[in-house]
Design a protein around this nucleic acid. Structure first.
Lengths: 202, 202
DNA sequence: CGCGCTTTTGACCAAAATCAAGCACTGTGG
DNA sequence: CCACAGTGCTTGATTTTGGTCAAAAGCGCG
């Protein structure tokens, strides 16, 4: 792993349609992958947290199939796509670890497909909060049930296939029931069990 | 590649939640991957055509994260998950080919996320028809603009996050404009350009 | 011929989008 | 230290899209 690059918030880091022979690991900060439809509708494909892997290079697809934008100050570790396959066949252990990473990425994408296709707005918001919050806990962010949370509601909307207005309404239901609270920097979960219930059936 | 297994239509081939140390390639026939929510809502994650790769095993995730069901008579080639990583570090070329496969799977999942999150029903149906039809052509199925098509509208609905009723209405708009026709066995595209336009902005 | 299924169609309903106004933070310059 | 501009958030009224329920029509297939 060689090159380290840093970006301020709201900077476009990689642009869809351009060639790129690099791959990245997030070192610190938040970012997201997204695509735009010709008329401007935006879909956020996933959020990227420290230690996430931006697993694409045009080596395999020709051009970048999505853009990446920073949400906070962001540090990336870049390496050449060629090193990936180099790593792959270096040893059985590293091959397995990499294959596992890809398979887990695919499983996460399937989760998003499930939510977008078959869950209601309330279920989507609740399960989104659960997932991102679990990930943050796993990686050692936050204290207790409070976590750093730099997303605006528009980001959640574009990741969940909703409008910002509807995300606002949905969150205020959750807030009204005393289940979560979200201010601009922090999300805190007051009642995890009811949040799970809300995600599961509401 | 060793074991070959065959299944009649509508058979569940792999069951979500069960362990499985095998991976598969589709030899002939159609199948689909899906998950169910506790209340019975079904989401079809993707359709599987000949030469598709069912890239999961519980070796990497613990248990199967989805179920697989046959649509037609189906033949699968199974191999042990261990062989995958064996293949990976055998040579640079095979490592690259496998990594490329995973990356392309992820890119397809992102396409589905985009459609489900930000496209209207009409756009989803049209772009679905374009995608599956292109895949079929690539793999040498169909003659001219007609392709074999064993899906019921309920399958399309569950893959596109819609209801069967709404899929029926949407297809009948396309049929009314003379763009496509779908009978139970065959789909044929009469006006590809207008289908693309319908997928893109309608 | 008649019994499953699937598709189609219609009438009505519900979830989420749109439009629009007002509010609340936050950072900036006087 | 305060006014205010900008950005995001909230809330209300209304519209749209797609869902639900139900009945009827097609289509294989025994």
């Amino acid at each position: 792993r060689r090159e380290v690059a840093t970006f301020p918030p709201r900077r476009i880091v990689l642009r869809q349609g351009e060639p790129s022979s690099k791959m990245f690991t997030v070192k610190s900060g938040w970012a997201f992958r997204f695509t735009l439809l010709p008329d401007g509708r935006r879909m956020i494909l996933s959020f990227l947290l420290p230690s996430d892997f931006v697993g694409v290079s045009s080596t395999y697809l020709g051009v970048m199939p999505y853009s990446v934008q920073s949400l906070t100050d962001l540090t990336l570790c870049g390496f050449d796509a060629g090193e990936l396959t180099g790593e792959l066949y270096k040893s059985r252990v590293s091959a397995e670890r990499l294959a596992g990473r890809f398979i887990r990425l695919a499983a996460e994408a399937d989760q998003r497909v499930l939510s977008l296709g078959r869950r209601t707005a309330g279920e989507r918001v609740a399960s989104f909060i659960l997932r991102i919050t679990n990930k943050l806990k796993q990686r050692g962010f936050g204290h207790g049930d409070s976590f750093p949370f730099p997303l605006r509601q528009e980001h959640m909307a574009d990741a969940l296939g909703l409008t910002a207005v509807h995300v606002s309404r949905t969150i205020s239901i959750l807030r009204g029931k005393g289940i979560v609270s979200v201010d601009r920097h922090t999300i805190t979960i007051h009642d995890r069990n009811r949040l799970i219930e809300f995600a599961g059936r509401n």
